[in-house]
Simulated assay, not measured.
Amino acid sequence: MSYAGLVLAAGAGRRFGQPKALVEYDGRSLLDRAVATLREGGCRQVLAVLGAQAEQAMGAAKEPFTPVLNRRWGQGMSTSLQAGLAAIPERYDGVVVTLVDLPHIRPEAVRRLIAAADDGAELAAATYDGERGHPMFFSRKHFDGIAADAAGDRGARNYLAAKAALVREVPCPGDAGDIDTPADLTALEGGAAA
């Protein structure tokens, strides 16, 4: 079995004040961190959906990835998920999906999701202290259903709820705390200036 990785990174980051794909944390952009996490976790190819300031994000990136341009990014995260799933090459049996603004997700979480997929899971979600978060795994047979159900800023949540019996929860180290504002970033950096 072979799996791709997908980073959703198209948003403008309105609450932050700039696209989060361009935000630096601990010396690396959030986009580079997310791409590296998926690759180090075992994804054979990593795709990143870009939208707002896509050219700047591609130009600043140091980690190699396959860009997917979402021209409809302003219509919500669902459009990025749809564009990303449609771009996954046919040779992959499934995809591990994460968001760009989750800097504490570890490669081990990706490895555990891939292990669950190899063990037969069709859908899987990382959990942290019992709370479901990212990354998530979707087998290819679910791509069309997930894409059809996604709307606005709602990604796969409703689809996964409808398929609850198929979703394997995978306990993972780290945490899925996100960065929404400059204050969040400052807090993560231990009070250092962002």
Rank of each mutant, 00 (worst) to 15 (best):
M1I: 03
A4F: 06
G5K: 09
V7L: 10
G11T: 01
G13L: 00
G13K: 01
G13I: 01
R15G: 02
Q18S: 03
Q18Y: 00
A21G: 03
V23H: 01
E24C: 10
E24M: 07
Y25I: 14
S29R: 15
L30F: 00
D32V: 02
D32T: 03
D32F: 03
R33H: 08
V35C: 05
T37W: 01
T37H: 01
T37R: 14
R39S: 15
R39N: 03
G41F: 03
G42T: 11
G42Y: 08
R44A: 15
L47M: 09
L47Y: 06
L47T: 05
V49G: 08
V49Q: 06
L50E: 00
A54K: 02
Q56N: 03
Q56V: 00
M58Y: 01
M58V: 08
G59Q: 10
G59C: 01
G59D: 02
A61N: 03
E63V: 05
V68I: 05
V68T: 07
V68A: 08
L69T: 05
N70M: 07
R72Y: 08
G74Y: 00
M77W: 02
S78D: 07
L81M: 09
Q82K: 14
A83I: 02
A83V: 02
G84T: 07
L85H: 10
L85G: 12
A87M: 12
I88D: 10
P89F: 06
R91M: 10
D93G: 15
D93W: 02
V96W: 07
T98A: 05
T98K: 08
V100E: 01
V100T: 02
H104V: 06
I105K: 04
R106K: 14
R106V: 04
R106G: 03
R106L: 15
V110F: 02
L113H: 03
A116S: 13
A117L: 05
D118F: 00
D119N: 10
G120I: 01
G120N: 04
A121M: 03
E122G: 15
E122L: 14
L123S: 13
A124L: 03
A125T: 11
T127Y: 08
D129F: 14
D129M: 14
G130M: 12
G130C: 13
G130T: 11
E131Y: 12
R132K: 14
R132T: 13
H134F: 14
P135M: 06
M136R: 14
M136C: 10
F137D: 02
F137A: 04
F137C: 05
K141N: 06
K141E: 12
G145K: 12
G145W: 09
A148N: 11
A151T: 12
A151P: 00
G152P: 07
G152Q: 07
A156D: 11
A161M: 14
A162E: 13
L166I: 08
L166A: 15
L166D: 14
L166K: 15
V167F: 13
R168D: 06
R168P: 07
E169T: 13
V170N: 02
P171D: 12
C172Q: 06
P173A: 14
G174T: 10
D178F: 04
I179D: 01
T181N: 09
P182R: 07
A183R: 14
T186D: 07
A187P: 05
A187M: 10
E189W: 06
A192P: 05
A192D: 12
A193W: 04
